[in-house]
Design a protein around this nucleic acid. Sequence first.
RNA 1: ACUGCGAACUACUCCAUCGCCAGCUGAACUUGUCCUUUUGGGCUCGUGAGGUUGGAGGAAAGUCCGGACAACGUAGAGCGCCGCACCACCUAACGGGUGGGACUCCUGUAAAACGGAGGCCAGAGAGUGUCACAGAAAAUUACCGUCCUGAGCAAUCGGGAUAAGGGUGAAAACGUGCGGUAAGAGCGCACGGCGCUGCUUGGCAACAAGUAGGGCGGAUAAACCUUGCGGGUUGAAAUGUCAUGUACACCGGUGCUGUCCCGAGUCAUCGGGGCAAAAGGGCUGCUCGCCCGAGCCGGGGGGUAGGCAGCUAGAGGCCGUCCGUGAGGCCGGCCCCAGAUAAAUGAUGGAGCCCGCUUCGGCGGAGUACAGAAUCCGGCUUAUUGGUUUGCAGUGCUU
Length: 142
Amino acid sequence: MPDFTFKKAERLKSLKIIGGLFKDGQSFGVYPLRLFWSAQPMPEGGLPVQFTVSVAKKNFKSAVARNRIKRKVREAWRLNKHRLYRKLEDNPQQYVCMVLYVAKEDLPSSQIEKAMQTMIHLFFKKNIAPANNQIIDEPPLS
RNA sequence: ACUGCGAACUACUCCAUCGCCAGCUGAACUUGUCCUUUUGGGCUCGUGAGGUUGGAGGAAAGUCCGGACAACGUAGAGCGCCGCACCACCUAACGGGUGGGACUCCUGUAAAACGGAGGCCAGAGAGUGUCACAGAAAAUUACCGUCCUGAGCAAUCGGGAUAAGGGUGAAAACGUGCGGUAAGAGCGCACGGCGCUGCUUGGCAACAAGUAGGGCGGAUAAACCUUGCGGGUUGAAAUGUCAUGUACACCGGUGCUGUCCCGAGUCAUCGGGGCAAAAGGGCUGCUCGCCCGAGCCGGGGGGUAGGCAGCUAGAGGCCGUCCGUGAGGCCGGCCCCAGAUAAAUGAUGGAGCCCGCUUCGGCGGAGUACAGAAUCCGGCUUAUUGGUUUGCAGUGCUU
């Protein structure tokens, strides 16, 4: 049974780090989402990923609409993050990730979740897989 | 029953699965410590499975007023600046509310009364300024006119008086009538109007009614201004507190000694080497001693990341008696009702409810409108869908 929780410790909180992500982080987009991430040394007792969502005020003026979209994206992460966690078990680094919602309209959850799955897969392929393949044998994906 | 105008309440509901935040409880693990030492037990710092309770709004919004609270400031007085402005009351306070009064508009009427609506309702009779166009003149004015008078044969021209009539204008210096006069004029009188001062009556008062006196002074204070009253400044990103790591102001100590091995020895010690965190320099010919000193050890302040307090039991909510026209108040009973910190309060599926279409089988839409707590209250303003209850008015039906 995968862990579907999303506790405080998994959330990215520091304003400094979030600001740094825009400046120095890497990114790619899977419509309607765009991922910003960077790696940092694993702190004592830390989790493999710290995650947060952002919706631009420019695109959604109503606070209620922004809240709704953030909840949908957070749910998509919560239900799919185990796919990434499973592959990061022995990773010595911690990743800080922020997902920006770039669409200008409120899309249904199914589409957001699909994009999230694609994005997690891409993130793994682009970033982690090449480094890890040299050290350990990756078991075939189930 | 329908329509219109208000008022109050409400803010989709249920089920399943997976979650989030906070409080309480708490298996288990863990830090320190004590007792007992047999197996353990007590206190304590953390982590925390599970259980249980609660978890957005009427406007949470705009941030427009008023407070609480906090920090800083503060002898007293004056000037300035800002705000407020019919009266009384309510309130912690207010620019809010309640009740009352004048005014304006609507309705209504012969005229009123009754009824409805509205608001920057102190002062223009303290001073200064301004008043488009038209008009002679917009505040001490005279174009036409009227009257008197001088010149001239006359047309006409000049001097003076006047403000009734004409004309202009949103507004022209109280209205009508009579007297009066050269013609006129509140110049005088009668009636009426207005506002000022005093008095009487009613009212806490604003004010109303009446009466006497002396008046007739255009608008504008959202122009300056005058009068009265009120006002320290900054806001929870306030403020207080704990404080890891790195670097650092400052203070104290230390800045050498211990130990091992080898050699010498008069058995006091001396020399060399290794190890342990650890240079030396100045005063001097040398030793002792004193001073400075990188480093090391300890103290320590400010304070970054971050944590905690402020932070939710309150001018609190609900119910009831009584007082008050009312806003509201006294008393009694019951209840505890979000507290996040990049920011929880949800996501998905199904059913109902709702809306649209309908061949009455269904099909489609919908986080139903406006909208997301951020120190907390009291208001105001603005946005807004549907439903429930209810008051008043009108129409219709039944009895």
